[in-house]
Simulated assay, not measured.
Amino acid sequence: MTWQLWQTPSPARRSSIIGLFVLVSLAFVAMPAYAARDEQAETFVNDIASEAIEILGREGFTPQALETKFRALFVGNMDVPRIGVFALGQYARTPTAEQKAEYLTLVEEFIVKVYASRLSDYTDQQFAVLSSQPKGNRGKEVIVSSQIEFTTGRAPVPVEWWLLRTDDGFKVFDVKVLGIWMAQEQRSTFISVIRNNGGNFSALLEHIETQIAQANQDRDVELTEADSAVATETIQ
């Protein structure tokens, strides 16, 4: 019997072989590349969150004292100038040098009040870092996933941190709470204010000033209510 070591496949068989090869190749391409967790990024986030929880857990802090503590925490660890420029979108080149300087000052104040206000809603909590993964392929950005856990049985609140890797370490660019990226939320609002006012940048400055004034008013109301509660307890 004569054995054929190689036989030219028929056209149909050749097509099947090629098809199988393509499918196997695509399967390997589609397999996700699981990058190692970024321990430095996770430690950075954990340190910020731990300090925030410590601030919130201190009794006797007035709203002003909380703002002062949060200002030092946020401004030192957030890339406020980049956040400010990002929030302007296509209007980033609109302001004059003087307007831009005023805007960045207001944005810093605004960020402190917004974050302090939102975080103050989460009391009696613990913080857990869950994972981290690179964002993009340049190695400059990292997303850290975490959650706020409550001892009261309340469902955990997911929090994601968008970090930028700089020469001086990490900086927070945005924070996602309950599915909403806060900087992107402000970007949408700021762009709408400028657009609805015919591109007038001064309208945005007035808008931010109004928001800050409202936050101060709300804080003063809280102080008044707290003082009234203390006075009532003293009388009783």
Rank of each mutant, 00 (worst) to 15 (best):
R138M: 07
R165G: 03
V129S: 01
S132M: 07
A97C: 02
Q184G: 15
Q214L: 08
S132L: 11
N196H: 12
T210P: 00
W162R: 14
Q184N: 15
K113M: 11
T105H: 10
R219K: 14
Q217V: 09
I208F: 06
L119C: 01
I143K: 12
Q217G: 11
S192G: 10
I208R: 05
E185K: 07
F170I: 10
L204P: 03
K176A: 03
E206D: 14
Q217S: 14
I148C: 04
I180M: 09
R154E: 14
K140V: 12
E222Y: 07
G179K: 11
K135T: 01
G89P: 07
A203W: 09
S120L: 04
N216W: 03
W161E: 05
A213Q: 12
M182Q: 15
F150G: 05
I148L: 15
V177Q: 06
R219A: 15
T224Y: 04
N196D: 14
I143G: 03
E141K: 11
S131P: 08
F170R: 02
K100N: 10
I111C: 07
I191W: 01
R219I: 06
L164T: 12
D121K: 14
D174A: 07
D167C: 03
E108K: 12
S202I: 07
E209F: 00
G89Y: 08
A213E: 13
F150N: 05
N197E: 08
A183N: 06
